[in-house]
Structures are given as structure tokens and as C-alpha cells.
Write a protein that binds this DNA or RNA. Structure first.
Lengths: 146, 146
DNA sequence: ACAATGTCGACTGAATTAGTCGTGAATACC
DNA sequence: GGTATTCACGACTAATTCAGTCGACATTGT
């Protein structure tokens, strides 16, 4: 598994914030409930996202969490790297020690896969993720209502 | 990290066997030394590869390990799946529980990446990996000898 | 018989994941 | 100023996996 629940949960939370962009702070409890994330764990993820500069938080009544920058300017690649660390599929593609590739023998296969992946993840913005979800909800409603 | 050292070591060992295809059994100690794998750990990996039908082993003096089928017929995808289990980058792409994708929100991005990856890994045979290494050694020697 | 080799299972230490909990800090509202 | 609400942060824990080590045993060539 390339991503742990950390990355999954973290992105879910960010999508939630993106969908409420411009509506003021969203509370942790709301996110946790809507996205099925243990609230006390979400706490840690939000802290991580805040430290990485993706989230701004407001304390006190009516407080909550907001995107620290527009959803268009946040891409999935940076988000996941903040949550998971490197997404390198293989050790020797991450720590570029000389010689580690020479003995690994499969790094030439993975390098291309890794590069493609990063390109694709960089091309997906948080705004696109939120929009995709809205689209999906709409068609789901249509399907059910027929 | 998508692959642990298990997958890395396992593939290294298989490349070693492929490079000695047709030369009789290769001993564990040799593989371990050449590929820089702890011998006692390699033991487990060979057992796993044997159970998966990729390796045949011979006991007694002069014994060792061989490919159970031609290197051309073994692809990197099947090898890695035997060693690592599913290569799915994300939980919801692995266990297809209905609804897990609905709430994940990023599975549509990963599905394409995952499919591409599997296609590429399926197209690389163990023979190609061994050949690539021979090629690389040859150019390395040329470079040094200039 | 004996030495070389693989087979197998028990055990271990470290790291990571996936949380829980409690205390404290900021702030809106009365 | 007091209180309720909400986030902030660190300590703690349980489960899992990884990465290995070790020892007893099985097989087989000489």
C-alpha cells in the first residue's frame, strides 16, 4: 500500500474544507462525522496539514478549520507528500545513495512509473477533487430519482 | 513506500537466478553475497517464491535454487504481487467494498495510475531485467576502461 | 557416515500506524 | 469576568508489519 489511512483521511478532510470554501470555518467534529474519520485522530492530521501550510485554524466558539490558500492552488501531490512523506515506490528512488540503484536492478522500471504518477498527482487540484465529488453526487441523485 | 525490502530483495534474488539460468542450482549464500541480502532473511523470501511457484530448490551438496519456469514467462507484476501482496496504492482500490470509494474521493485519480502501473510491470519479464543488468554492466565497464 | 545444503517454525527488536485521552489555550458571548 | 466552545499539543497505548536471527531437522551427493 502506497498510502496509509493518513493520506486517505487527510485528503478527505481537505476535500471537505474545499467544498465549504468561503463559508467560514468548518469544525473538526463535522468533518469527522461526514468523512468517517475518528475525531481524535483527525486532530493530528489537521495539525500536520496546518504545519504544512494547507490549513488555517480558528479557536473559540464558531471556530474551526479553513483552507490556508485557494483550492485551485493546492495539488494532490503536495498534499500527499505533506501527509505521507515521499511517495517513492522504492527505497532506491528516494534516498539517492550512489550504488543503491546499481544493485537494486528494477529502478529503471519504477522511475518512469514514479514520474508519471507525480505528473498526474500534480495535475489534480483540490478544487478538481471537490468538483468531481459534486458531480458524482449530482449523477447519483439523478440515478436514484429515476 | 509501495515496496518494502521484501519486494526489492526478492526481485534481486530472482534476477540473480535468471542470470544463471541453465547453469544449475545457485546457492543461497552466493545470492546473498552478490545481492547484499542477509542470508537468513533471504531464506524466507526464497520459501515464499518457492510456494508461489517461481523457484525450485534442490537440497544436498551441489544443491541450491533455480527458476521454476523460463525467465521470459515471469513478469515483474506477478513476482511483486507474490512478494508484497496487492500493489494497490490505496485501500479502496484493493478491497472493493461498496461505498468505500464513494467516501474516499480520490480513487478516480489513483485507478488510472494503478492500471498503468500494472500494465508496465506486466510488460517487464525477468529475462528483460537480467538482460538490462548485463547491458548496464557492459557499459559500466566500457566507461571505466576509457 | 558425513558434510553440504535447503526447510521450517519460533522468537525478537524496531518502527509505524492508528488511534485515545487529558490538560491547557484562545475566543465569542453574556 | 465567567462560561461554553473550539482548537492545540503531548503522553500514552495496542496492533501490525518489517527485518531479521537462530536452532533443529530433512535431504542428498560422496
Amino acid at each position: 500500500m502506497l498510502l496509509s489511512t493518513k493520506g486517505d483521511y487527510g485528503v478527505r478532510a481537505m476535500i471537505d474544507l474545499a467544498k465549504h470554501e468561503g463559508e467560514g470555518p468548518v469544525q473538526r467534529a463535522e468533518i469527522a462525522k461526514r468523512r468517517q474519520i475518528p475525531e481524535s485522530y483527525l486532530d493530528h492530521l489537521l495539525a500536520q496539514l496546518r504545519r504544512a501550510g494547507f490549513v488555517r485554524s480558528v479557536r473559540g466558539p464558531g471556530g474551526g478549520h479553513l483552507l490556508a490558500k485557494p483550492a485551485e492552488e493546492i495539488c494532490l501531490l503536495h498534499l500527499l507528500e505533506a501527509l505521507e512523506g515521499s511517495l517513492a515506490p522504492l527505497q532506491c528512488l528516494d534516498n539517492h545513495e550512489p550504488g543503491s540503484e546499481a544493485i537494486c536492478g528494477q529502478e529503471w522500471v519504477w522511475q518512469e512509473i514514479y514520474d508519471d504518477m507525480r505528473r498526474k498527482l500534480a495535475a489534480v487540484s483540490l478544487a478538481a477533487l471537490a468538483e468531481h465529488e459534486r458531480e458524482h453526487e449530482r449523477t447519483a441523485v439523478v440515478n436514484y430519482s429515476i
